[in-house]
Design a protein around this nucleic acid. Structure first.
Lengths: 287, 287
DNA sequence: AAATTTTACGTAAATTTTTTACAAAACGTG
DNA sequence: CACGTTTTGTAAAAAATTTACGTAAAATTT
């Protein structure tokens, strides 16, 4: 989160001296990041340790670390802020807010993701002789989407949003099968069971879920992203989008790994759709 | 100018040891800004003054100042001017590019959308006695997602990704039924047929598709967004995400229209999921 | 309202980090 | 090969940051 906003937000929870520091920084943040702790202390008319304590209160390691954070938030051109929808918002307001907070979450997600793990996931997927995508509830749409993408690669793909089918499929796993599980919380019992089953039957299990969750513990590989779920609206929103983008990333990694020849394949799949399309005039069957 | 770029640009004009420093920083800039000069020197296998001289060569006052500059240029983001994924991109590069281009597309979409039409769509949806979401191919995932969202509103919801079922459902439409069709191109013949059928049977037809497409012509209301589809990769990517966000927007408009009392309902749906969740310990069934 | 505990703040010392000064090594050049 | 130049490292100095601790102020209790 933006450090500068954070400061003005916490302004009341600061002590008297700490607020003096906060005000000096808010008044001239550019000056603040180029000052030493001594200079800043003098400007705020407080002692140096007070400045240091101020920094610690904002979850930084110390003064230099704080300056780093501040510098980043100053540079941050991100016009994307996570804003919450409010009761009295009109269509204009809530549309803008939802788009923007989605973009903000994607930005977060991008920064929090480990590309080394992505690469490993792509490794695993390219070597799979069958890929299964499982998701329940809101994540089932993600699983379907993944199926749609990977199907184009001419790899055997399975997708279930039904626990019983998942279990059957998991039990029949063999080595070389890869099971990808989507779950934002990673705490859905049934899905954790499925992960264990698949694992016990020699499948490689990849979890797109939150780190340290029960589901994560059952996976061979966990891809987690830092996406704060919108708690005020009781629906999964941004987490789902982030997962979809992650699917795009993996699909892209997949095609890149397979090389140029492979991309011809994709084109063929796309061309095969043309017969079912209308052209601009609206009636000619073949484009 | 971007410090990171500056480093890679000046790479040849550095001396042997300085280049070692440059390479270490380029390899892991995030690590670099959180390290002391001593740590960085050890990583680059050079002496501390060498690191300091390196910083000065890049027109900074010293090491701390350099870290500040670097932090800013990292926060500034978009080191990737070219948004298209290229053959030789590594996981880092293509991950960043896909996230960034997705965000850029959402930004476009937001600016191109007509909130008046969104408001009208919400009007229609709140008055529906049944909502059907239809989508084929990549858009079927969007339809599923919409079903998942609107299902929580305790409204009769239907979702099909199968042409035959769609037709049957469309034929059985009555007044008060709302049919929402997802299609990026708006040129899928079967879907255009379904739209006409539904319309002929007194359903209200909403199309989430591109303006002026054959599908758009069959709809009572068209929500279109300006999302340039990635033509070099043969997969729908950003268009789909934009549609999903649009679903979020409509769902949000829906809840706002229904008011506070209604939001209790959402909470109840969410609470009902708790029994199937594991808590932090991993085994307690009821939260 | 006084006493006691808690919290906030500053002084001074310790530590860490960065910078400077200088010398040795490497490099190129006549 | 000797000279000058540039580059690099060592060690010491300087600067900056952090810690430890004591006092003052505020809050809480009696």
């Amino acid at each position: 989160m933006n450090t500068l906003d954070k400061i003005s937000k916490h302004l009341n929870s600061f002590s008297k001296s700490e607020r003096k520091v906060a005000e000096v920084i808010l008044a001239a943040p550019q000056t603040a990041i180029h000052s030493s702790i001594a200079t800043l202390a003098k400007m705020a008319d407080v002692s140096e340790p007070t400045v240091n304590r101020f920094c610690r209160r904002l979850d930084t390691k110390g003064f230099p670390d704080f300056k780093l954070h501040l510098a980043q938030s100053l540079a941050n051109g991100t016009p994307y802020v996570n804003r919450h929808v409010e009761e009295q918002d009109g269509p204009d307001a809530y549309t803008a807010k939802i788009f923007e907070s989605t973009m903000a979450c994607l930005d977060n997600a991008r920064q929090s993701i480990d590309t080394v793990l992505i690469n490993r996931a792509v490794d695993i997927l390219t070597q799979a002789n069958q890929i299964s995508f499982f998701g329940l509830g809101a994540s089932s749409a993600v699983a379907h989407d993944a199926q749609n993408k990977f199907f184009r690669f001419n790899v055997p793909v399975i997708c279930f949003d039904d626990v019983v089918m998942m279990r059957m499929s998991a039990i029949n796993s063999t080595e070389g099968n890869v099971v990808v599980l989507f779950s934002h919380t990673g705490r859905t019992k049934h899905l954790v069971d499925v992960a264990r089953l698949a694992r016990e039957n020699d499948a490689t299990v990849i979890g797109i879920t939150s780190a340290d969750s029960p589901l994560a513990q059952e996976c061979h590989l966990v891809l987690s992203m830092d996406v704060p779920e919108d708690t005020d609206v009781y629906m999964p929103m941004a987490s789902r989008i982030a997962q979809l983008v992650l699917v795009d990333v993996m699909a892209t990694g997949f095609t890149l790994r397979r090389g140029n020849k492979f991309r011809e394949n994709l084109k063929r799949v796309k061309d095969s759709l043309k017969d079912s399309r209308l052209n601009k005039d609206g009636f000619n069957a073949v484009l």
